[in-house]
């Protein structure tokens, strides 16, 4: 997992709950990195899972919700850093449809070791897009947060529904219905 996911997560925790909580969830987790992250490094995926679960325990907010909130926040981080890539893309669906065959292809060029989820997209009608998420990371909620933030970015409104296609959450159907 790229370091930026950890640094941005911990920054968000600090902003909302103070550094005490950050220190606390690091201390309660078994981290090979020792809780030291830099955005350009790469760290084991299990560490973010432990951090999120400890935060949930500490704050009594469900993991699902935490990931969704973090996803929403993370989209803005991406816009800040890579905004120029988005200029040529006219709307949210277009951006979402280009993830698999354009964005992820470019990401791999920059970070050959990146492990990325797979997305299949299908337009059901002019206002409905269906995406199928596949990843061993089981972070579909993070994706839902990103999508919601994406709609906001393009000034679009709509509903994002999530439906697990497997029990373990590795394959998830996400349906985005824009309001007319």
């Amino acid at each position: 997992m790229k370091g930026i996911v950890f640094t941005e997560f911990l920054d968000l925790v600090e902003d909302n709950f103070g550094y005490k909580v950050v220190d606390d969830i690091i201390a309660n987790s078994q981290l090979s990195s020792g809780g030291v992250y830099t955005s350009i490094g790469t760290y084991p995926h299990g560490e973010i899972v432990q951090l999120v679960m400890n935060l949930s325990r500490r704050t009594q907010i469900p993991v699902q919700q935490l990931l969704q909130i973090y996803g929403k926040h993370f989209f803005n981080v991406l816009v800040k850093q890579y905004g120029h890539f988005l200029k040529a893309v006219p709307d949210a669906f277009s951006l979402l449809e280009s993830i698999e065959h354009y964005i992820h292809v470019e990401v791999r060029k920059l970070y050959p070791d990146a492990e990325l989820p797979h997305f299949e997209t299908k337009r059901l009608d002019a206002l409905t897009l269906e995406m199928v998420y596949r990843s061993e990371r089981k972070m579909a909620d993070f994706a839902v947060g990103l999508i919601e933030s994406c709609l906001l970015h393009y000034g679009e409104t709509g509903v994002v529904e999530k439906n697990n296609l497997t029990d373990d959450g590795t394959v998830v159907q996400i349906r985005i219905k824009k309001s007319a």
């Binding site: 030291v36 992250y37 830099t38 955005s39 350009i40 490094g41």
Partner: peptide, 8 residues
């Protein structure tokens, strides 16, 4: 973290 980043 800084040292780590510098090394990278």
């Amino acid at each position: 973290a800084r040292k780590q980043a510098e090394a990278i």
